[in-house]
Each structure stands twice: as structure tokens, then as C-alpha cells.
Amino acid sequence: MRKYLLPFLFLFLFVFESIFVQYLPTEMFGSDRITVPRFLIISILFLTVFSSRKYGIIYGIIFGLLFDIVYTGVIGIYLFSFPIFAYLMSKLMRILQTNIVMVSLASLLLIVLLEIGVYEINVVINQTDLSFADFASLRLLPTVVLNSAFIIIASYPLKRHFEKFMASVSD
């Protein structure tokens, strides 16, 4: 049962990100800061740690490709960054202890790196004219705040779910 639930959980997160942005953009409250929900990649990072690297990379490729095609229209950016960050996470966890606090901090660090990476690619392909200082204050900081809130709320349920998923797969 749990085995088949996993794709739907990720599909839900995938759609939830866009609904979140549509109904709660910070511009509605008169602020010019941009918060980007990164719930999907956070869950993929948790999946990498608490189930296996193989699953993390496969889900990274599938949902990265979906993200590119459905949302951005530029194929490649997320298709490559999602699995690469899943791989980095697994490498990082060999050095660090696998407890929930360390995993949360590591995924927050990777979110920062992902934001910077995606920004740099968009600068190179001339899709944004934001300066780095503006990017750091208007995008990066609010995004980190939003996503750390998500990590605090969702880290424990995600951990439980993925561990049980792993147990059911190995049965």
C-alpha cells in the first residue's frame, strides 16, 4: 500500500507548489519580496536520506523533467539540478550524522545552493536581469525563511513516511 502512495505524495507536492504561489504570493501583501516554495526538492532530499539514494535520484529526474516542461518551459535546469542535489545530499550524509536536525540543516544548505545555481543559469541564458544583491535580499532570504518553516513542519512526518516506505519495499 505504502509503496504505491509515494508517487502520489510527490505529485501532490508538485501541484501544491504552484497552488501555493497562486494563492499566497507575497505581492498580495504589498511586499516586493519573492518567496519560492521548494517543498518538492526538500521531500526528494529527505527521500534520498531516509530511503535510498536510488529512489532520490529517480524521483529527482522524473519530477525535475515535469517541473521544466509544465512550469518553466526551459527544459534542463531542474531536470539536472534535482538529481544532482539528491546525489550531493547522499554524499553529505556520509560525513554528517543521520539525525533529523542534521538532515534538516543540510537540506536547507542545499536549497540555498540550488537557488544560487538556478539564478546563475537564468542569468547566463538571459532570462532575468536581477542583480546578485537584489537576488540575495529579495529572493534568497525570504525563500530560505519560507522553506525552513516547511522543514520544521514536515520533516518528522516525511521521515516517518519514508522509513516506513523503505521497510515495506524491503519486505
Binding site: V15, E17, S18, I19, F20, V21, Q22, I34, V36, P37, F67, V70, Y71, T72, G73, V74, Y78, V118, N122, Q127, T128, R139
Partner: peptide, 10 residues
Amino acid sequence: GRNPDRYHEN
């Protein structure tokens, strides 16, 4: 839906 990454306003 709306593009969550906000670089491309789609």
C-alpha cells in the same frame, strides 16, 4: 497553476 520558480511568469 502558476510557475513556482517565478523566473518565468507563466
